[in-house]
Design a protein around this nucleic acid. Structure first.
Length: 609
RNA sequence: GCCAAAGUGGCUCAGGGGUAGAGCAAUUCACUCGUAAUGAAUAGGUCGUGGGUUCGAUUCCCACCUUUGGCUCCA
């Protein structure tokens, strides 16, 4: 049997065993929903009489093993719709599933032993003994809504790792452990890059080392955008509700915005409020003074465009912004730097004529390729098309979608990107670029969205050749996405060993004894003078301590300075990730190597000098 | 928001109804050292916050806050 097929059959069969075990442990009140196989095993959704806690995991595993040891036969039976409804009459989710199946669907059930039956398409193993050799382990639980719909019942989902052999399960658990080592939250703490405080949930404090890195990314982004004729602007971080009413955010996005209610009408100004503070001033979202922190840059970019009249000759106009954005997330949605409530994007709004869409998108895709290549990141493109509740002219949509498709086909080849039919925003089609984190979770970084709605809301125009007033199309785009998320991704990608050009500190300098401090400091100055970020440890600690410290911070190069080096004006170089050291490297040679890596944004460290 | 779990010195963690302990880091002293942990001493905590039970709570109970894994995979 093909491995894929094998995984499918036994993982799915094991899901039935899980359900049978849960029945035996939690009793016959248990309602079973669905139990598909997934990448690392399978899960099954239940409605249970009590919560499942970690203490239950072992019990469930033992019960599953016990059931397998019964070596029961599995029997497939075809069944009529009515018989199925009768058989599963106490299982409300199964009944719902049966009722939703097409009339002519052949229904099959699988019996495992005499006391467990599940509605299932199969195929399955013939006897439980076939599953005795497989390795499994309860991974965890989660609340999951029936049919993924938050208005429906909350079910308990039990996840189980399942692999053909003990070794494969072990290997998977080892991989998982390794992935946890790459966790950007852990590395961020080790390298003192960023932190969070309860007083500002989901809003990172960028510490000196982390912010240094952040600045490198920003300057890289700016450098490229300058080359591609972008113009950077900066706009108000908080805006009056009036702006959000025009943009439509007040109607569609207000739950995700941090609001600053104005003073209620008739409320006294501060100096008139009496000393009794218990009441305090009254605030009111209905006040005309109500402001909100911006969750997106778009409305301000529209205002910037609108300040004057534009000729078709000016387009495309590309306004980029890296202003701070705030988006309120539901509790439970935050995740380290991957999902925060305060962040900056390499955001841009480009105003184009309809026939400029194609060339503009192509330029953006090339820019994206260049950026992701610099980091060695691979990404997946997803194309989302017109939803049912689309807004605007269907002909414009069709032409725009055709342009996007043409570029995607050209770039990735037909079929090498995902198409999500009907998943686009109501204001335009979009292309998302997804990158995986260490645990394999996908995160959207880049996004390119066409927008036919905002230009209309803001009444944007340009004067065309024939002197007529036309409406420009807006392209929203970000390539890094948020710098926060991007730093999270690359921290895991590089496991904290960042490329030279973006390393918080690029060179650590270790004088062996105090009399070497002077030369060490000279080298530090020379490096800094050449735009290289160096740090020197002048403390009276012994050299091993100093080296250890810089190693833990993952400094790309550590220079050791002793009698020999002072004498010959050279340095000894420890290279991150390399066992051997280089000796007798002339200081100037080392400086040139560093300058080269900064200039070229080299991904790997140069190991020969 | 929902399910499960966590929160104890800067970090990693132990402990447990009678107001806390280790290692690392820090500070001081000694050692002046050639490539990942020299030795000794010292200092550092209202045990996430607020209530409750109790003679007594960091420990038990309740609420809240923050954090983590999951909530897309459709018989």
């Amino acid at each position: 049997m093909e491995r894929e097929e094998f995984l499918k059959v036994y993982r799915h069969s094991l899901a039935h065993i899980l359900a049978k075990a849960v029945f035996e442990i939690f009793g016959t009140d248990t309602q079973i929903a669905i139990g598909p196989q997934i990448d690392d095993g399978m899960y099954y959704d239940f409605a249970l009489p009590r919560p499942v806690t970690e203490e239950d995991y072992k019990t469930i595993e033992d019960k599953m093993t016990e059931i397998l040891k019964r070596k029961e036969d599995w029997r497939r039976e075809e069944i009529s719709r009515n018989d199925a409804l009768e058989l599963f009459k106490d299982q409300k989710y199964k009944v719902e599933i049966i009722q939703d199946l097409p009339e002519d669907e052949l229904l099959t059930i699988y019996r495992t032993g005499d006391d467990f039956v599940d509605l299932c398409r199969g195929p399955h193993v013939e006897n439980s003994r076939d599953l005795l050799s497989v390795a499994f382990k309860v991974k965890g639980t989660s609340a999951a809504y029936w049919r993924g719909d938050s208005t429906k019942d909350t079910l308990t989902r039990i996840y189980v790792f399942a692999f053909p052999s003990k070794d494969e399960l072990k290997a998977h658990l080892a991989w998982l452990k390794e992935a946890m080592e790459r966790d950007h939250k852990k590395i961020g703490l080790q390298q003192d890059l960023f932190m969070f405080q309860d007083t500002a949930p989901g809003m990172p404090y960028w510490l000196p080392r982390g912010w240094t890195m952040y600045r490198q990314l920003i300057s890289y982004s700016r450098e490229l955008q300058d080359k591609h004729n972008y113009q950077e602007i900066s706009c108000p971080l908080i805006n009056n509700k009036k702006l959000w009413l025009i943009s439509g955010h007040w109607a569609h996005y207000v739950n995700n915005m941090f609001l600053i209610p104005g003073l209620s009408e008739g409320t006294k100004a501060d100096d008139e409020v009496e000393q009794d503070q218990s009441a305090g001033p009254d605030f009111d979202l209905e006040s005309i003074d109500t402001m909100a922190a911006k969750p997106m840059n778009c409305p301000n970019a529209m205002m910037t465009y609108k300040r004057t009249v534009h000729s078709y000759k000016e387009l495309p106009i590309r306004y980029s912004e890296i202003d701070v954005l705030h988006r309120k997330e539901k509790s439970g949605q935050m995740n380290g730097l991957f999902r925060v409530q305060e962040f900056r994007q390499d955001d841009d709004h480009t105003f184009v004529t309809e026939d400029q869409i194609e060339s503009e998108i192509e330029d953006i895709m090339n820019l994206a390729d260049e950026i992701y290549n610099t980091f060695g990141l691979t990404y997946k493109a997803e194309f989302s098309t017109r939803p049912d509740d689309f807004m605007g002219d269907i002909e414009v949509w069709n032409r725009a979608e055709a342009s996007l498709k043409k570029i995607l086909d050209k770039k990735y080849g037909e079929g090498n990107y995902e198409i999500n039919e009907g998943d686009g925003a109501f204001y335009g089609p979009k292309i998302d670029l997804q990158i995986k984190d260490a645990l394999g979770r996908e995160w959207q970084c880049g996004t390119i969205q066409l927008d036919f709605q905002l230009p209309a809301n803001f009444g944007l125009t340009y004067v065309d050749k024939d002197n007529s007033q036309k409406m420009p199309v807006v392209i929203h785009r970000a390539i890094f996405g948020s710098f926060e998320r991007f730093i999270g991704i690359i921290t895991e990608h590089f496991k904290g060993a960042f490329p030279f050009w973006m390393s918080p500190a690029q060179v650590g300098i270790v004088p062996i004894r105090e009399e070497h401090n002077e030369f060490a400091r000279d080298i530090e100055n020379l490096l800094e003078y050449n735009g290289i970020r160096a740090e020197v440890d002048l403390s009276p600690k012994n050299m091993n301590d100093k080296i250890k410290n810089f190693r833990n911070l993952r400094d790309p190069y550590i220079l050791v300075i002793g009698d020999k080096e002072v004498e010959s004006k050279t340095v000894s170089v420890n290279i991150r990730g390399v066992k051997v050291q280089l000796h007798d490297i002339p200081v100037d040679t080392f400086v040139e190597v560093c300058k080269k890596m900064n200039a070229e944004r080299t991904r790997d460290l140069i190991t020969e000098m």
